[in-house]
Design a protein around this nucleic acid. Sequence first.
DNA 1: CGTTAGGTTGAGCAATATCAAATTCGGTGG
DNA 2: CCACCGAATTTGATATTGCTCAACCTAACG
Lengths: 270, 270
Amino acid sequence: MAYSNPLSPTDLLVTRFNKLGPLSEQERGVLRLIEGRPKHTYRPDSRLLRESAEMRGSHFIVTGWAAHVRELSNDRRQITSVLVPGDPIGLALQPQPLSPTSVVALTPLRTVEAPEIPLAWRDRDRVPGLSRALDLAAAEQECFLLSHIARLGRQTAHERVASWILELEYRLSSRGLSNSGAFAFPLTQEILADVLGLSVVHVNRTLQQMRRDGHIELARGRLAILNREALRAAGEFKAPLLSSWRLASSEGPPSELTASHQRTLRSPGV
Amino acid sequence: MAYSNPLSPTDLLVTRFNKLGPLSEQERGVLRLIEGRPKHTYRPDSRLLRESAEMRGSHFIVTGWAAHVRELSNDRRQITSVLVPGDPIGLALQPQPLSPTSVVALTPLRTVEAPEIPLAWRDRDRVPGLSRALDLAAAEQECFLLSHIARLGRQTAHERVASWILELEYRLSSRGLSNSGAFAFPLTQEILADVLGLSVVHVNRTLQQMRRDGHIELARGRLAILNREALRAAGEFKAPLLSSWRLASSEGPPSELTASHQRTLRSPGV
DNA sequence: CGTTAGGTTGAGCAATATCAAATTCGGTGG
DNA sequence: CCACCGAATTTGATATTGCTCAACCTAACG
């Protein structure tokens, strides 16, 4: 199936968090505990959380995509962020939080419980690298929200699509889910419209334009970036800079698990 | 001057935080320390923080308004949030953070240093009420960002203006800066355009429409909400619900123990 | 094979942007 | 008090982007 991926939940999390902040062996052990936790499956369109409902338990996506969504009158809805494998669901800073958005499955979805994560976030002294990685993941998420505001407020349809695709690919590649700019892409154009604040028809025309221009290839549930420079020029995407020490050591903490350095070049598409 | 307000920095913060989570006398003492800290003044348009620059020191606005802003090509800019007295500047969860947006003064601005705030945020055990208030303030801020995404993505010009005005009044009144829906409003229509993702001309026409309809009054640096119900119906503004114990006891300062006993019954499966 | 969800296309339209020219307003100096 | 200045607001005319509606096409799937 298009949504499946070979990484275990643990691998996903270790891959991603280790890029944010180096994890000790003990901290990886904490993540590995998650491997054995109960899993949950959801059908497309099922609702994992309702806006203003209490969040209980934090989960991570193992396979499939989901979204944070705000609903408005007249069947309008706005997706505020798309969630891919490795993203948290129901994870919050304070106890007894109410969800600020609904969370819905966009595809068949599998999640795993991760009760140790919110605990670790608080217990900073025992797992400093992990807490810090969680802080940075939160900061990154906020950064994407801000980019999305700029996108919706001030960018044209083409620019929105371009910058959003680059952001998505950036996120997927940090989890090892993108192969030199090509990745499984299970969203319908209607969902895309709700992400980008456009009509379905206009999304369609915009995508076709980008195909005609040779900037992307999109077919059969796969999206390939063919001309990254063109997309960057149009969308003005900049990878989020989160913390100054990352600047100093942007190669990242050397690790056995940095998937992105070991990509094999492969022809994109299907 | 239109931007002055009678509250001291301390009063502003105590007023606001005390609404988020009840503060002990000792915690108020921490806030009162801020009273004596160094102040800073800025002219309109000056830049307090640059995007991707390191944030050093956390401040609070004492008087005047500012904004978080993302800049794009072609002189476009998007304001992601407007900051009013009592709002933090440069406050972040993790150490050595890089600012995800620029911060600019929209009016003459006065801030005060508040080095104890980030410390208090971490030192949860010593000042639990204050840490919690900070958590909730952060959650509230995130909620406003999400609302802004929905606003820009899926609402019309009229709806955007309506919901934004209500949100603004909500924030001002929690600081004692709004008087039965009327408050000092120092923003130009051009700034408003950059907030709402519209052209200046269209902002102008939309405001006039709302004046003609008798929904608002806006003149000489003051904005008054005349028909709150009409604005709510148009904009679909909902005050953010942050935590379940606020639901249970939103009128008085609740005992911190009511929380877990008054949870609402269900929540959909996560 | 028929059904259906998703994708594509065309035509007309509405919302909003752009451009350009007043006009008003809040100071400021005489 | 008056005259003036620049910034902000307002207005009109026109252009454009993106939306709506409706039809049609295609591929996946039972």
